[in-house]
């Protein structure tokens, strides 16, 4: 896991250029609207509209498939179950709505930069200032955490190498303890560095 992590797919379509906030708002509206979808026809239209969005964003069918595939583990057993219990029509609506919403959310993710989404989160947190939450600190924390994932993978590699060098067999517990202690020490250093730069309040 090196290089940028994230699911963003660069492009220049209308959907790519739309502000991140607008896309997230649309997603929230679609989620609320999904409660009113009742018939298979409406469900079909919803799925078709979402797929049209993918066409506009020029996302290749291969990418759609890759982003959708993990959901099959849920969708296939669920479809079988619902067809048996409530019959074809209702099953199509229940499963179709989930598929449409997941596809739509994936579309937002594919066409929006992670950094833009962090900015939206920071802006959404602005009213939370009243509760004593500082939006800039939220942004800082998110960026640190994004950096934290490759950091942990790197640390895990170091711990494993150290154990192999000492001839240890890699057992889960003997691996997890030094890894987490190492992570906590890193966090200490990071905290000190932040405090030294005046982030403490």
């Amino acid at each position: 896991m090196t290089g940028p992590i994230g699911l963003y797919l660069p492009g220049r379509s209308v959907l790519h250029r739309l502000p991140a906030g607008a896309k997230l708002a649309a997603l929230v509206v679609a989620g609320a609207g999904s409660l009113f979808v009742r018939t298979p026809t409406q469900t079909g239209i919803a799925v078709a509209v979402v797929l049209l969005g993918y066409a506009v964003a020029r996302v290749s069918p291969r990418v759609i498939w890759t982003s959708f595939r993990p959901l099959l583990w849920v969708i296939v057993p669920l479809t079988v179950f619902q067809v048996v219990v409530v019959g074809w029509e209702k099953a199509m609506v229940i499963v179709g709505v989930i598929v449409a919403l997941v596809l739509l959310a994936n579309l937002v993710t594919l066409t929006t930069r992670t950094t833009d989404l962090v900015d939206v989160v920071v802006r959404v947190c602005e009213p939370l200032r009243v509760l004593g939450i500082n939006p800039e600190r939220v942004g800082l924390m998110l960026n640190l955490a994004i950096r934290g994932v490759p950091l942990m993978v790197e640390l895990a590699g170091q711990v494993r190498e150290a154990q192999l060098a000492r001839g240890h067999n890699v057992s889960a517990r003997a691996f997890a303890v030094p890894l987490i202690v190492g992570a906590l020490r890193r966090a200490d250093e990071l905290g000190d560095a932040l405090a030294a730069r005046g982030f403490d309040d």
């Binding site: 924390m141 955490a145 950091l151 992570a183 890193r186 966090a187 990071l190 905290g191 932040l194």
Partner: peptide
């Protein structure tokens, strides 16, 4: 800051 870093990590 230390808490913030721990949460992030």
């Amino acid at each position: 800051s230390r808490d913030l870093a721990m949460v992030a990590i």
